[in-house]
């Protein structure tokens, strides 16, 4: 196990270097330098800011020197100063991460709690009315655009019926609330964003769970379990479910970048002050240091998500260690 984790971490360093190289390449994608061509047409970037970015990226130096200096600062989590409010980029991003992570974690838990039973039931009753109904639901879930779903929910649940708040994460009178009311208030604000964020993933995971379960149910050891007289419940939940769940863990790890990327959409629609909205605002304002910072940190979060999925996979499945 220890050797496996060590091997993974070495691979991680290689990936991390790759991420920084691509991010660095992105900075240089702009025609000419981000300081001249783009900025000329962009009144939001002042002369002073232009000089600052030229200095930050050392744009007058050769490329490899630029990269190494950028990497050194990156290792110290120094992403420079935001154009918009002159605050350190790292600080701006760090204070936004908890909100985004909370929403993503709650979404993932919801996806697992709801998606897995749906998938298992579909597999067990393969071909039944319920299975076909769920298949249709899954295809609908895949096809509904997140932003459209958000708008409809906002319009009906928020504006027309006034059931839930639709903007931000706390009410105006938040400070006057007691502790319990504060928790209720934040939860009420998070219901719609979490629902929207979980919706697409729910369709995916239940589908994977279904096909994984179908595969497992055809295996010999399931026949053996039935043959030795175990109840159907024990066969399904003790023997089949554990094995069918494994590939889903990997899929869950792979869906992390999608979840983080999706945060841009629902956070900007619901005005959630998380990483996605920070990114959107920075893109609109061409705030390059923040854009680059979020890009790198988003990739690192994905990397950590995948690592976590792989390690938990190895922890559950002893065969992994041998490879």
């Amino acid at each position: 196990m220890g050797k496996y984790i060590l091997k993974r971490i070495v691979g991680l360093v290689v990936l991390l270097l790759g991420i920084t190289i691509i991010t660095f390449a992105v900075i240089h994608i702009a025609p000419g330098k981000p300081t001249d061509l783009e900025a000329q047409f962009n009144p939001k970037v002042s002369m002073e800011a232009r000089e600052r970015i030229a200095h930050l990226y050392g744009l007058d130096k050769p490329l490899h020197v630029q990269y190494i200096e950028w990497l050194k600062r990156f290792a110290r989590f120094d992403f420079g100063i935001s154009f918009m409010d002159s605050r350190p980029v790292a600080q701006k991003i760090l204070e936004r991460i908890p909100i985004t992570l909370t929403i993503e974690l709650v979404s993932i838990i919801l996806i697992l709690l709801i998606g897995i039973p749906i998938g298992v039931a579909s597999a067990v009753k393969e071909g039944s009315f319920y299975d076909r109904f769920m298949t249709v639901f899954v295809f609908i879930g895949f096809a509904v655009p997140t932003f459209w779903l958000s708008l409809i929910l906002m319009d009906f649940i928020g504006v027309r019926w006034g059931i839930l708040p639709i903007s931000g994460i706390k009410s105006l009178e938040f400070e006057k609330f007691g502790n319990f009311e504060k928790i209720i208030d934040v939860s009420r604000h998070l219901i719609l964003p979490v629902f929207v964020s979980a919706f697409g993933g729910l369709a995916g995971i239940s589908r994977y769970m279904r096909s994984s379960m179908l595969h497992v149910l055809k295996q010999d050891y399931i026949r053996t379990a039935r043959a030795k007289g175990l109840s159907e419940k024990e066969v399904l939940y003790k023997h089949a479910l554990k094995n069918a769940f494994l590939p889903v863990v990997t899929i869950l790890g792979l869906s992390v970048p999608g979840l983080i990327g999706g945060s841009v959409i629902f956070e900007s629609i619901f005005s959630i002050p998380g990483m996605g909205r920070l990114f959107y605002e920075s893109v609109m304002a061409r705030d390059y240091p923040v854009i680059m910072g979020v890009l790198v940190i988003g990739a690192i979060l994905t990397l950590l998500g995948n690592l976590l999925a792989d390690i938990s996979y190895a922890a559950v499945d002893p065969r992994i260690k041998l490879e």
Partner: peptide, 17 residues
């Protein structure tokens, strides 16, 4: 490495530039 980037972030960053 490419798969590590939240695709939507990468697309937004490039379009912004």
């Amino acid at each position: 490495i490419m798969l590590c980037f939240p695709t939507f972030f990468l697309i937004l960053a490039v379009i912004a530039l």
